[in-house]
Nucleic acid binder design. Structure first.
Lengths: 228, 228
DNA sequence: TTTTTTAATTTTGTATACGAAAGAGAGCGC
DNA sequence: GCGCTCTCTTTCGTATACAAAATTAAAAAA
């Protein structure tokens, strides 16, 4: 109903810092275990420690960074157990949301089809832009989830669940993974068009499952990431 | 595994303020729409605005208060749609957690049985202590959820989902609601003892459903709570 | 009286200041 | 050489200071 988008970039220092650090963590610019110094970050944004502290506290509250009193915050490192927890939550929440979205029938099927096709095309290019694919993919999935009508579900998936995925996820994809993944997008659109909740739910669950399998298979989650 | 409880009261000003305000909102001491002034809160805790601001930002991030730039924060008001969203999420997440807990079989059945019986006894007293019942109930349910083995699930339910329930919930209960609710506790313990995931899941879903029904039936959610 | 403009007050947003805790390293004793 | 203590440095936690935005109240104009 409300199209107040993300209330971002509206001259809000804390949110800007929060988003910037969050993206840096998600894209891997900031590595797990790395200490985040308040003055250092403040200098890099041209601000004092005050707004930086508030941004860091937000990141700590959603588990992106770990906070130790009088010692500071460091980028959270994720064990395979952490990722498994998130995957399990995700495969509970998102398919359910897709089921609701299908039953509501409020999805913009034209837009979704376009996004799915855009990803197909992007994958055909010789040097495909993983950044762009990620954006298209995020847009595709968040669009559908919004149609569930449950705003809290959307926020939940955004903050807690989306965290360690998506960005790094595609890194572990090979060509067949992309093919399967993008084909599933079309199947999801079909299920939404048919307003078939069960279908949408299971299609999304399969989609997540495939992504998860290729992640655990390909990525080396053996290193314990000591960081002191 | 870790018994680091809640890391609370360990000389942490921000967390103390955060918890205090949160409880005041949940118990109704702070009413929806009420403005929370930084200096005022700071004075009441004997601290400056700095830690108060950080606590308020945390509350804003989990939706307990609404933050408007240069205007301050006010206690979030909940519409019936909000509560419905939360109920739907809750009846997805918690029963699933109970299913996992049952399958894991790690629950402390003696403790849970004691808690369930303590609630029975409390209900028999002439002047029964709703505060104590709430505590017992919270303890009962969070104990089980911890046995799901998914820490993120626990945190999620604590912050997002538990919010508008529990405290005010019992206010809408009549004697038959309490009877049914407390009987269901025993059924849940039985399902855990049997390590029957399906049973635990459906028992919990029924438990939530009953609680939700009595809430929407008894409570007057008609007033729009204008607050400007 | 009603509306508009303007000044005063309140409250936030951010910067700076200062004390306290934690960590690093030198110096000392064993 | 090894371990201990003490000091120095770094970094955080909180208080205070000041500027900007928003609200309120009052005064002036219609």
């Amino acid at each position: 109903m409300k199209d107040d988008k993300i209330q971002a970039s509206e001259e809000n220092t804390v949110d800007n810092i929060y988003q910037a650090i969050r993206n840096q963590i998600l894209t891997g610019t900031l590595e797990a275990g790395q200490w985040l110094r308040e003055v250092e970050i403040g200098d890099s944004f041209g601000v004092s420690r005050t707004p930086v502290r508030e941004a860091l506290r937000l990141l700590a509250s959603e588990g992106m960074v770990a906070h130790e009193r009088n010692r500071g915050v460091q980028v959270q490192s994720w064990t395979i157990e952490d990722l498994n927890e998130v995957y399990n939550l995700r495969s509970l929440l998102e398919p359910w949301g897709y089921k609701l979205a299908a039953e509501n029938g409020t999805a913009d099927l034209v837009e979704l089809e376009e996004l799915a096709c855009a990803m197909d095309e992007e994958a055909l290019k010789t040097t495909f832009n993983i950044q762009r694919i990620t954006e298209l993919n995020n847009h595709f999935h968040s669009s559908i989830l919004r149609c569930s009508g449950n705003q809290r579900l959307c926020q939940l998936v955004e903050t807690i669940v989306q965290v360690p995925f998506v960005y790094r996820n595609f890194a572990s994809f090979d060509e067949s993974d992309f093919k399967r993944s993008f084909a599933q997008h079309h199947e999801i659109v079909e299920s939404l068009r048919a307003r078939d909740g069960e279908w949408a739910e299971s299609a999304m669950r399969a989609h997540l499952h495939g992504s998860w399998k290729s992640t655990v298979r390909k990525q080396a989650w053996s290193q314990p990431r000591s960081s002191n």
